[in-house]
Design a protein around this nucleic acid. Structure first.
Lengths: 199, 199
DNA sequence: CTACAATCGGAGTCTCAACTCCTGTTGAGT
DNA sequence: ACTCAACAGGAGTTGAGACTCCGATTGTAG
């Protein structure tokens, strides 16, 4: 298998990971590897020794992020009220996106139909559980699925990241989305755009 | 003022504009100038003679797009039913974004508080009129403003562009947003996330 | 038809960022 | 303490894309 790294190598690997997380969060995936190396206090060569390509480094960060968020989300699922948990999660996510540009990329990957990576799937599953709970509690309409939720989440995050919204605008926008997600007591009669879920 | 260009120069300018529109629409703003020049059937030098920087070219395209969309939108405002016009416009916009990557950039600019360019402001005004009409017709709740609408529109467009959605997912997502935008007959009582509009 | 200024074209420059290579250094087993 | 494979570091290579320069062309005024 993989023999354990020399102590200094371990330390540097960690430093690089930490630096990359910060830099990618601030500047997005287009941040330069040199900046990361500098922030980590290592040479560029060292960075590429540990992560053969920039893409590999980005994926490592994304994976870590996915695990952290998935864990948080699972906790939300478990501990307590499914009613507010779902909306809480949604808000928190959007709030982070403004500063954590990485989450947007992450969500985009989660939106892809069949994700290969396990942590991303875990995140998707956690969101699904959250949604299911809120639906059982009657706080989210029955006819939406994870796909739409992820889609909405991605959209709002991306938009809020690009043009940085005021907190008020963010709240207002979320309020509209949330109202759309809530079950509508007066939904009998009018022709809905929503076809009933077939599968 | 500006003396009229030589005939061949006019022709080339047009060709470049057309080519740029197509290429930017397909590949987004990161498309290379060389590809545009090639598609237009002119040399790179010619391209940069007409548009001193890539940015200038992009802005020219964006401006044109803004004018076209603003015009269409104004027509929607004028001719007929304000009720469906608003939702029609929203849907159409999202539908285009998948293939016209340029519209996303355009909307992002429109979201900025004080836009400098006239065409962009015209677009914003047209959307505002559309919204006002739909609100007067009772088809959109009173407490949303252009800012939120533009924000929502941008978000959904960006998301649909990035991961290309199936048509069904697109419809479902739009349905949720639309339901959020509609006035809620049963909105008395429950604590709403929406603070009443102050200004 | 001629002259010539406006225009064209594309090889070449410049910049920036990912990635490589090789020399010097160091952790750790003996 | 000694050895040496593993590792660090950063100058240098490579590639891509925006932009420049100037000799070759061409529209058009006279």
């Amino acid at each position: 298998m993989t023999r354990s790294l020399r102590s200094d190598a371990q330390r540097n690997r960690l430093r690089i990971l930490e630096a990359a997380e910060v830099v990618f969060a601030m500047k997005g995936p287009s941040a330069s590897t040199e900046e990361i190396a500098q922030r980590a206090g290592v040479g560029i060569g060292t960075l590429f020794r540990h992560f053969p390509t920039k893409k590999a480094l980005l994926q490592a960060i994304l994976k870590e992020l996915a695990v952290r968020i998935a864990t948080e989300t699972e906790e939300l699922v478990r501990s307590g009220e499914p009613a507010s948990a779902f909306y809480e999660f949604f808000s928190r996510m959007v709030g982070q996106a403004t500063k954590q540009k990485t989450v947007v990329g992450l969500l985009a990957e989660a939106g892809i139909a069949v994700s290969v990576a396990k942590p991303v799937n875990a995140l998707r599953d956690a969101v699904e559980a959250l949604l299911a709970g809120a639906q059982r509690a009657g706080k989210v309409r029955q006819d939406v699925g994870v796909a739409e939720v992820l889609a909405l989440l991605t959209g709002v995050c991306q938009a809020s990241m690009h043009a940085d919204w005021s907190e008020e605008l963010q709240d207002r926008t979320l309020a509209v989305v949330f109202d759309g997600l809530r079950p509508n007591p007066a939904s009998d009669g009018g022709p809905s755009l929503l076809r009933s879920r077939s599968a």
